[in-house]
């Protein structure tokens, strides 16, 4: 499984709202350990890797992302430079609330893209997660912004925004 191959995906790639670090993501995520696709290597002799041993896959990384970041968006581009109108829209809406937004650029990593899609069972980007829960894409975020649900959902995050 391709997702398994990215067991070294680490969190440092996350772009905080105004920090354009996410260009690191793509490079940081590439195959940094030996992954054995070698069918005649006995598993005892395969390289060990802590993350792999702890069962960390792309799915786990996504799970951790959304758990640790109250507002997490997987998007095309980065918040400061979205590469798609829908991603731009979602970011713009979320930015109305003055809350920290964490983002990953899925354009830089096809495995992450597929992993997120599988995680949420949602076919398109952007994908917004709030307090660990999948909220939806840009249409839903916009809709919730317009009907006040988003404000309600984000209210306690806003209060906690002093927290690093």
């Amino acid at each position: 499984m391709a997702t398994r191959m990215f067991s070294n995906l680490v969190l440092r790639g996350i772009a905080q709202s105004r920090v354009s670090r996410s260009s690191m993501v793509g490079q940081g995520l590439t195959y940094s350990t030996r992954i054995s696709g070698d069918s005649d290597t006995h598993e005892d002799f395969q390289p060990t890797n802590k993350l792999k041993d702890s069962g960390i896959s792309i799915q786990d990384v996504v799970q951790q992302d959304v758990k640790e970041n109250p507002v997490m968006i997987y998007m095309k581009g980065i918040p400061d430079a979205p590469r798609c109108g829908f991603s731009a829209l979602a970011v713009k809406v979320l930015q109305q609330y003055g809350i920290p937004i964490s983002a990953r650029n899925i354009l830089e990593n096809p495995a992450l893209k597929e992993g997120v899609k599988a995680f949420s069972n949602w076919p398109t980007f952007p994908q917004v997660f709030i307090k660990g829960e999948f909220v939806g894409g840009s249409d839903i975020v916009l809709n919730m912004h317009q009907n006040g649900q988003l404000k309600e959902l984000l209210s306690d995050i806003k209060n906690a925004s002093a927290k690093p």
Binding site: W122, P123, T124, F134, G136, I140
Partner: peptide
């Protein structure tokens, strides 16, 4: 819910979405 309704639409278009 809205999310579930969108999921139904996505599912209906599963073949076309790619």
């Amino acid at each position: 819910r809205l999310l579930e309704r969108h999921r139904l639409v996505n599912a209906a278009l599963a073949e076309q979405m790619p």
